[in-house]
Amino acid sequence: MKIVVLIKAVPDTADERILDPQTYRVDREEGDQIIDEITERALELALSVKDRDKTTEVIVATMGPAHAIKAIRKALSMGADSGIHVLDDSLIGADLVLTAATLAAALRDLGAELIIAGNESTDGRAGMLPAMLSEHLGLPLLGSLTTAEMSAQGISGQRQSEAGTQEVTATYPAIITVTERFAEARFPNFKGILGAKRKPVATKSAAELGAGAQSLTTVAQILPRPARSAGAKIIDDGQGADELITFLTARHLI
């Protein structure tokens, strides 16, 4: 089976993350860039399939600036077989529409049975990319899974939504997105780290992929998050429960 994992290089959440006041973009040059944690879990899922069946081929794909190669190498050191790096200056600041169309073009002819993405990432996020990708590629999407079961015919799992839990299934080829309920990623071992350089990484430019899409959004303004103000304190002198219910109801929380 051929599995593509969409990994995303993001600024380390342990560092302070910065929105550039000039470009309105996430500063991706400062600080450590790491593989987004959920996409690491997506990779772990693919690698666990490979653990059971050595013929499984795991390809990691990412669209991102030059340093995103570090994330690809890390994924290769963990056990992925090859990487695809979509790298082009014209893609700097790409919005969802352009990112989805470009990644779709990169994945279209790979013949993957399964594409695994995260449900959302820790930086600029909408959690929409996998759905748009499934539209571009004409593949079924099982989104926000909390479990996944793979058989020869297809994939099934549970998905959590506001409405409850759903049991969903799809035949291959398909796209799934995983949540943080999936297992944490393994550490790469020394052999994996030393062998990663010998694994192939294909770098694709926007022209090569010919996605023919454009960013449709512009960011008009960014504002700092307002400082936290002290919350309301309810002191229970007999009416506490009532006050609490009024407070929660007013905010549609109950």
Binding site: S77, P188, I193, K197
Partner: peptide, 8 residues
């Protein structure tokens, strides 16, 4: 590689 090793 040495940087990747120390990081791991």
């Amino acid at each position: 590689e040495q940087q990747a090793i120390t990081e791991m």
